[in-house]
C-alpha cells in the first residue's frame, strides 16, 4: 500500500499539537483520544490523513510505502498507552515522560521529516532473539 507523504507530514503536525496540548492541559482524555488515532493509523485508517484528504485535493507528486509510517504509529500507540497507565496510576513522571517521548518523535517527523518510530524497528529486532 502507498500513501501520500504530505498526508503523513500533516498527521505528524496534528499529532505534535495534540500531544503538546496533552502536556499543557494535563489531559489524559486527550491522550486517550490520540491513542485511538495512533491505533487507527497503525491499521492504515489515520483520521488525520482523512482530514488531509478532505482539505487537499491536488494529487501527490510521489507516493511512499505505507509500511514504515504504520509501524511508527504502533510505536506511538505503545508510548501513549504507557502514558495513560502513568495517568491512571498517578505516576506523574511516567505519564509526562511517555507523552513527552511521543511528542519528541512526532515533532521530529513534523519539522524534519525524520521517522524516529521507524528507526525503532531494527533496534527492536536486534534485541529479539533470531526468530527466523
Amino acid at each position: 500500500m502507498q500513501v501520500d507523504p504530505r498526508a503523513l507530514r500533516f498527521a505528524a503536525i496534528l499529532t505534535s499539537v495534540v500531544l503538546a496540548l496533552v502536556l499543557i492541559l494535563d489531559s489524559p482524555w486527550l491522550l486517550a483520544a490520540q491513542a485511538v488515532v495512533f491505533a487507527l493509523g497503525a491499521a492504515g485508517a489515520s483520521p488525520y490523513g482523512m482530514i488531509f484528504k478532505g482539505i487537499v485535493k491536488s494529487p501527490p507528486g510521489e507516493l511512499e510505502d505505507a509500511g514504515p509510517p504504520r509501524f511508527a504509529q504502533l510505536v506511538g500507540l505503545a508510548f501513549a498507552l504507557v502514558g495513560l497507565v502513568g495517568y491512571a496510576t498517578q505516576i506523574t513522571p511516567l505519564a509526562l515522560g511517555a507523552t513527552a517521548a511521543a511528542l519528541f518523535a512526532a515533532f521530529l517527523n513534523a519539522a524534519f521529516g525524520f521517522c524516529l518510530g521507524c528507526e525503532m524497528y531494527l533496534i527492536i529486532r536486534r534485541l529479539l532473539p533470531a526468530a527466523r
Binding site: A20, I24, A100, L103, F107
Partner: peptide, 11 residues
C-alpha cells in the same frame, strides 16, 4: 506548571 514546562523542554 510542570506539563507546559515539559512540553517546552521536549520541543
Amino acid at each position: 506548571m510542570i506539563g507546559p514546562a515539559v512540553a517546552a523542554a521536549t520541543l
